[in-house]
């Protein structure tokens, strides 16, 4: 049974800023569908006493002390910037807003 539609894949591609051809959308749709089906199988065996797991390692509370460490210089920070000005990253004007 198909869970994933081509519209959903096109929507996701748009959100992720990935340009896909119609052929790619079609093939990804069926691939994603297989993945969703496989995960659905796992969900079948998960009983209510199995908590949702976001990490495979049984660790928690891994913290850092609030102590200042090494920083980059502005030059290092900007070294890989395609463009910079006034010590800052230069980006094209974006039609949109801060989130």
């Amino acid at each position: 049974m198909s869970e994933i539609s081509e519209q959903q894949v096109a929507h996701l591609a748009n959100l992720a800023r990935i340009a896909l051809t119609p052929e790619e959308i079609s093939s990804l749709t069926s691939e994603l569908d297989t993945i969703v089906d496989s995960i659905a199988k796992v969900q079948e065996v998960a009983t209510p006493d199995v908590p949702a797991t976001s990490h495979p390692v049984p660790l928690q509370n891994v913290f850092r002390d609030d102590v200042v460490g090494q920083t980059l210089t502005t030059e290092q920070a900007l070294a890989n910037a395609p463009e910079s000005a006034d010590g800052r990253f230069k980006v094209s004007a974006i039609l949109g807003e801060e989130q």
């Binding site: 200042v68 460490g69 090494q70 920083t71 210089t73 502005t74 010590g87 800052r88």
Partner: peptide, 18 residues
Amino acid sequence: FSAAPNGFGDAPNTNISP
């Protein structure tokens, strides 16, 4: 999430870590 300083009013891109 990083050991870079939390400061205000510093020169641009100085309180920066990877």
